[in-house]
Design a binder for these strands. Structure first.
Length: 328
DNA sequence: GGATCCTTCTTCTTCTTC
């Protein structure tokens, strides 16, 4: 139909609606859309929410760079071929060397946390405010603690399983039922993905980039459908069917892989990454594989974040140092 | 023995039509 014929119809689509008659319907529809919040709570929320917006948008006056100043190779073009490395031995587990003046070597998590975009900070703050309104300060703290506890438990069970070479499906039910229902759900959720994981080479192992000077602990290095990957296990409350639902996780995985590729302790190279998302209700988890191209893209994002972190650090040092001198 | 470290998670939304 010609748009010019439709135009008059559009002008007042609700003018003929008996609004009195449908008022309860409209109310019920609207109430499900905006949840149980009242104008009072919304207003209170806005006071909190709109405060940080100004703060959050301020840095955008200085546009963010898209390419890192210094490019650094993701793969170490040495002469080591990963296929020469035996795959049959037990997985590597390089423990984090605690307390050796390591504060000078920042971690992947710390760098990602401290270099979030203004948008990220804004949405996280807004989410936090909303949760506190709903659960209260104490309730929110408990909610978070519970999420962390579940995540840690899930990781430890997975670690044990991979170390032993067992599969969740073949485990004796009397054993699997020992675990809390959420953990059983998470494991159920990813059991079909675990079938494609083989040749586990590292579990919860520290990776440190020799020249870029950062470190992290990679969850797992193994083959996924035959391709060697750095794997990151995640638990999630919400479904994450697309890679874009995983926020900074791809950058995190690329950072670990880049570190591993430039860490003398590992004699092989990793080109791909994998993010595995598990759900506690046992519904099928999602596996997001990052091919070489995606890894390079995220490696560049990582280099940018690393540069931003270093700049902030230098900025902090130059701004706090004079004060300290004045104190002396 | 206490302190610190790396992780563990959390975000993406709004307008209107057969």
């Amino acid at each position: 139909m010609c748009p010019c014929l439709r135009a008059p119809k559009r002008r007042s689509p609700y003018s003929s609606v008996d609004s009195e008659r449908y008022s309860s319907l409209v109310k019920s529809v609207m109430s499900t859309r905006v949840s149980s919040q009242t104008p009072e709570t919304l207003q209170a929320e806005d006071e909190h929410v709109f405060g940080p917006v100004v703060k959050a948008q301020a840095p955008s006056s200085r546009p963010e760079r898209r390419a890192p100043r210094t490019l650094h190779p993701f793969l170490n073009c040495g002469d080591v071929l990963e296929t020469e490395e035996p795959e049959s031995g037990p997985p590597t587990r390089i423990l984090l060397n605690r307390g050796q003046g390591r504060s000078s070597v920042p971690s992947v998590t710390r760098i990602l946390q401290q270099t979030q975009s203004p948008e990220q900070i804004f949405y996280l703050e807004r989410w936090k405010r909303r949760m506190i309104l709903e659960l209260g300060e104490e309730g929110f703290r408990e909610y978070n603690q519970n999420l962390f506890r579940q995540g840690k438990y899930f990781h430890s069970v997975l670690e044990e399983l991979l170390e032993s070479g067992e599969t969740w499906k073949n485990k004796d039910p009397s054993e699997t039922h020992k675990y809390p229902p959420e953990v059983q759900g998470y494991m159920e959720s990813i059991s079909h993905i675990l079938e494609d994981v083989s040749a586990v080479r590292a579990i919860e192992s520290t990776v440190k980039h020799d020249s870029l000077n950062y470190l992290g602990v990679a969850d797992c290095v193994a083959r996924f459908r035959g391709v060697l990957c750095v794997i990151d296990w995640k638990t999630s409350e919400k479904p994450k069917p697309f890679l874009s639902n995983t926020y900074d996780n791809p950058v995190q995985v690329a950072a670990y892989a880049g570190a591993l590729n430039n860490d003398g302790n590992y004699k092989y190279q990793v080109e791909n990454g994998l993010i595995v998302v598990a759900y506690k209700d046992g519904s099928p988890g999602h596996a997001h594989q990052l091919n070489a191209e995606l890894m390079l893209e995220n490696w560049n994002s990582w280099l940018l974040r690393l540069e931003k972190f270093t700049e902030q650090r230098l900025g902090d040092a130059s701004s706090t140092f004079p004060e300290k001198r004045q104190e002396v």
